Amino acid sequence: MTEKFLKILTGINRPSAPSSGSMILVRDLYSAMPETRTTFLGREPVDPAWQAAFGELTALSTVKRPHGPHFDSYVDELTREVGALIEKIQPHAIHAQYVGFALSQAFSRTAGNIPIIAIAHGPDVMVAERSAWEREGMYEVAAASAAIVAPTAALADRIDRLTGREFTNRLSVIPWGIRLSEARVRAHPPTEEGPLALVHAGRLDENKSTATAVEALALTEQPHHLTVIGHGVLREHLEQQALELGVRDRVRFEPFLPRAELWRRLPHFDAFVGTTAGLEAFGLVLIEAQAHGLPVAYSDVPEVREVLGTTGVPYTPGDPRSLAVALDEMGRDAHLREALTSAALKNARRYDISTTGRRLRELTLRVAF
């Protein structure tokens, strides 16, 4: 039986390049979705490799004004541009990335009879929890959507609460995934006890709380080394913090790496450290680490606990002493690390991007036909 061919319109209102976890996820997701032609709305500059992942990529021309007194007029202009594109493309369904952000609002105002699936990423939920104005945007998009997708039940519950539990029956949980076939595990992981070569990768901001890992290094009994990979507003602060704590010689800072390079590097470390202290939509980089056989110490926030559970070592969010204890335990116990590696690989196998693509496609077919 021939599968029904789907035309999907989606987009993220940023330069079209693999600059964040969500951008990489979206590229992987629509590449993995069979019998589908996806038109992606993004921004200049466009990465050539990014463009190849979609049936068509259109750069939006409306000048961005995402904050301040001109936001409403900006959304109005964006809505007119998006409306013309919808009329031209005539998709079977629209996937509105980030529930409540400007582009998803534009989709919700111009879709007409075309069904919308709103897809949450985390930052949209974070801003809605802080601002009544942002909650209004989330509510508008949720009300216009036939379905709302979150990668974890914990994140779905936050959205449900923020929208007054009026759209509970529209919420679906579809876990994120990665290209598991491209992950490589170190052939002979170290079995000796002693200090660990640790790695942390992600945005360097308050929510990601990389400072917890730096502070923990000053509290460990063993002289572990930490490599921090990523960019963000707190980079200089973290470097100064490491200097003041006397661990600058054990902390190495590196810029954001393309995924292929990050994945090439991961097997050379002994363990991964996740530090998010607030909201984490899913923790995709933790699954990337597990897929490469790395034991993971993770901040015990609800969304990550749901994804990793007992396959990693949890510690109290934002508590460097709790993390230090977890790191020393892994450093002293090679058998524990071996068990965590086995558990990590088994857990990662649950999160293949092809499964994410198949489930989202099935949901889209249900709402579109």
Rank of each mutant, 00 (worst) to 15 (best):
M1A: 07
E3P: 11
S20P: 08
S20W: 04
V26K: 03
R27H: 09
L41Q: 00
P45S: 02
A49L: 14
A49R: 14
A53Q: 08
T58N: 10
R65L: 13
R65F: 10
P66W: 07
F71I: 10
F71M: 09
E77D: 13
L78V: 08
R80P: 01
Q90P: 06
P91W: 07
P91A: 11
A93S: 03
I94D: 00
H95G: 10
Q97T: 10
G122V: 11
G122H: 07
W133V: 15
M138H: 04
V141N: 01
A143T: 08
A147L: 00
A147F: 00
V149Y: 00
R158H: 08
R161W: 11
E166K: 15
E182Y: 14
H188Q: 15
H188C: 13
P190W: 12
G194K: 09
A201E: 06
E206H: 13
T210Q: 01
A211D: 12
V214A: 08
E215N: 11
A216I: 02
L217I: 11
L226Y: 00
L226M: 05
E236S: 15
L245I: 13
R248P: 05
R248D: 08
R248Q: 13
E254N: 09
R259K: 10
E261Q: 12
R264G: 14
R265S: 11
F272K: 03
A289H: 02
V296A: 09
E303S: 08
R305N: 06
E306Q: 06
V307W: 02
G312I: 01
P314M: 06
P314A: 05
L323S: 05
R332E: 10
H335C: 13
H335F: 12
L336T: 07
E338D: 11
T341E: 07
T341S: 11
N347A: 12
R349V: 14
Y351I: 03
D352T: 03
T364G: 01
T364R: 02
T364K: 00
T364H: 00
V367R: 05
A368G: 12
F369L: 15
